[in-house]
Design a protein around this nucleic acid. Structure first.
Lengths: 213, 213
DNA sequence: AGACTGCGGTTACCGCAAGTAACATGCACG
DNA sequence: CGTGCATGTTACTTGCGGTAACCGCAGTCT
């Protein structure tokens, strides 16, 4: 029969696809984001055209790969975010979860944040579609959680989205810097960031008389 | 004389270098970060090897180009940051300055944030040196200002640096998202971000009874 | 004047990675 | 058996970063 055959082959194709993704994963983990298609194909024990048949182009492979990790990370984050705890504790846990993840697999993290430059084909002049999808998705996710759980008055949706993206960006930039310089322990970083979000900047006093006011 | 000649030539070289940078600027402004060396050379009316003589490699050109814009932007930001005004106002002005800049020249901004992937030569496995230098520099700068002007008790330096990078990241991510979706006016965005920094997240109440606590 | 040298410039090339075309092979179905 | 179809390969094209080797013209030295 046609249908059963189709499904069989689809299944096989899916398995193959997963294998390929895992091979790609290994290579990216080793070589970082500049892993070449040849290298990935070699790691998978096959040759380039197969990759292209499965994923279209490099962007397709990268997208598929990114989706896997992004989904996984987002699951962890959601868990930390939805845990039954004090808000501050939830925030700290979420930060820590994220930082632990990027600390554990820097190459993957690096790959997720800098997917690839545009190839010859599409060059989106439009700004905004270039940036790491992970950041966007985390931002939206966080925005949703904030809006669900925090009472922000009118315009809450807008505000939640701004905050979602803003907080994610804060986490990302601080994490990136921290990963590079390791100026303190993870726990300290988490504490400092949470303090920032808790308004300690506004609460602190001026140091000198200061030029203004 | 040798010395005068040298200086003359140095001057000429510097002028040439500036011209080349301006040409590169134009191309980047038109084509975004994937501008090719050939294109830049053509725009400057010369050919590739000259670019390489002046800048070493693509990274060098990009670094030089990035430095110009980064310096310019940092000057504006410093001005806003050091203005004689209330802290909240200073923060809002700084945010607004940054957002206005990326709004005015998205391509340049895009270029600054995604400089380029590593070529065949250097492949820094180390995470941290890849990311946009602009973010790092802004982070350090802000950290310095914070430490100078805000009284943070012991460990102030560490804390200031974390906050510097964190706040810059917040600004960046929110700006990136905003530039793509334009969900609100610039002023609203600035206000929302400042509110976030002013601890409104911590101050807001829970929406429902909530699963925890 | 005429050979020597330094410097701005060019052409022509290498290596490498993305992406593709065309060919080869294994296996179900009529 | 041949026909379709999916899987796999080799070998190619294109385009870019980067470089080597050559060209020509200032000015200088003798």
């Amino acid at each position: 029969m046609d249908t059963t055959q189709r499904t069989d082959q689809q299944r096989a194709a899916d398995r193959r696809r997963r294998e390929l993704l895992e091979a790609a994963d290994r290579v990216v983990l080793r070589d970082g984001p500049q892993a070449s298609m040849n290298a990935i194909a070699a790691e998978a024990g096959i040759t380039k055209p197969i990759l292209y048949r499965h994923f279209g182009d490099k962007g397709g492979l990268y997208a598929a790969l990114a989706k896997r990790h992004t989904d996984a990370l987002l699951d962890s984050l959601r868990a930390a975010l939805d845990a039954p705890a004090d808000r501050r504790e939830r925030v700290e846990n979420t930060l820590d979860t994220y930082l632990a993840a990027i600390e554990a697999r820097p190459q993957v993290y690096r790959f997720l944040m800098h997917p690839a430059e545009g190839s010859s084909g599409d060059q989106g002049f439009d700004v905004g579609k270039h940036s790491a999808p992970l950041l966007r998705r985390m931002g939206e996710e966080l925005a949703q959680v904030i809006e669900e759980r925090v009472d922000l008055g009118p315009d809450s949706q807008q505000l939640a989205r701004v905050w979602g993206h803003g907080i994610v960006g804060m986490m990302h930039a601080a994490g990136d810097w921290w990963l590079g310089e390791r100026p303190c322990s993870r726990a300290e970083l988490v504490r400092s960031l949470a303090d920032l979000l808790w308004g300690r900047l506004a609460a602190a006093g001026d140091r000198l008389g200061g030029p203004g006011f």
